[in-house]
């Protein structure tokens, strides 16, 4: 598969569509440049935003994607997405045992990423994060990969975003550690640091950090019915969260987000507790 950007460059075509995508942007409209467009214009973004399947297609997760893009736009981060050239990282296939399909996906994606000379990748999905960061290098894909909470923390430290946490003052926020961010890759503090910066009261569940309890979606469970048992995992985890009476359950993964949102609904608590991604918390704090 030849990346779109290369193709247009070779045949000397930088179509008006691409051009539009870079320049003609109205106020309040998301600026979402594609790699193909930038490449055709001879530009290289600072970072590639890997949106992921959930972030592209799932209605709840798309809101996270947009919130993150709003922050990127506000901070004037030069980024791009692959758009229609992005494909599943292969994570659910690999965890389901289909190594073959995983590697096909990986090799295809790596070809695209390498052709664009991608150096740094940010993603709001811990599954994409883990796969890109840990499993792609062995197949020829070497990038600096960061989770969006790490990236946001970095922007904050560099003073590229400021966070007015006023509206979260006195709010109890708990963070649910995504397995593929926490235990799998030892990232526990970046999301918590951001919550603290929001002036909120960070409260911890009975199981947190290294001993965080799964939301029930990982290992391809998201895509199948659970095995017979006496409870669903997301209900167990939601109960742990509700036990500490939070106003907001913060998540850092589109799948955890769905699982916990369902859990809160199941417990009929959606009027008092909301599940929000860290990016959404920040975007809201900035009135984006």
């Amino acid at each position: 598969m030849v990346p779109l950007g290369l193709l247009t460059k070779w045949i000397g075509l930088t179509g008006p569509r691409n051009h539009n995508e870079i320049t003609a942007i109205m106020e309040n409209e998301l600026k979402v440049p594609t790699m193909a467009a930038l490449f055709a214009a001879g530009q290289q973004p600072e970072v590639l935003f890997w949106v992921g399947c959930a972030g592209s297609f799932d209605d709840r997760a798309k809101k996270i994607t947009k919130a993150f893009v709003k922050i990127l736009n506000k901070a004037n981060v030069s980024f791009a997405v692959l758009g229609t050239e992005e494909s599943c990282t292969g994570d659910p296939a690999k965890r389901a045992g289909n190594e073959f399909l995983f590697q096909m996906q990986a090799v295809t994606n790596i070809e695209v990423l390498n052709a664009y000379g991608v150096k740094k990748v940010v993603t709001a999905c811990p599954h994409c994060f883990n796969t890109l960061k840990n499993e792609y290098p062995g197949l020829g894909g070497n990038y600096e990969v960061v989770h969006h909470t790490q990236f946001l923390k970095q922007l904050l430290e560099e003073g590229r975003i400021t966070m007015e946490g006023g509206q979260y003052k006195g709010k109890r926020i708990t963070f649910h550690d995504p397995c593929y961010l926490g235990r799998a890759n030892n990232v526990y503090e970046a999301p918590r640091d951001l919550i603290r910066k929001l002036d909120a009261e960070l409260v911890e569940m009975k199981n947190c950090k290294k001993r965080g309890l799964c939301c029930g979606a990982g290992g391809a469970q998201m895509f199948k019915e659970p095995e017979k048992g006496n409870k669903d995992v997301n209900i167990e985890r939601t109960e742990q969260a509700l036990d500490i009476k939070p106003d907001i359950i913060a998540a850092g993964c589109p799948f955890c987000n769905t699982m916990l949102t369902d859990g809160v609904k199941n417990k009929e608590k959606e009027s008092s507790v909301v599940v929000m991604d860290i990016a959404e918390l920040i975007a809201r704090a900035e009135d984006l």
């Binding site: 399947c53 592209s56 947009k66 229609t84 494909s87």
Partner: peptide, 19 residues
């Protein structure tokens, strides 16, 4: 995943529609 590059039956060409 094999046919349209996502675990759900969406078209890869619609991947940027969210924007």
């Amino acid at each position: 995943i094999e046919n349209n590059g996502a675990p759900w039956p969406f078209n890869q060409m619609d991947r940027l529609n969210w924007s």
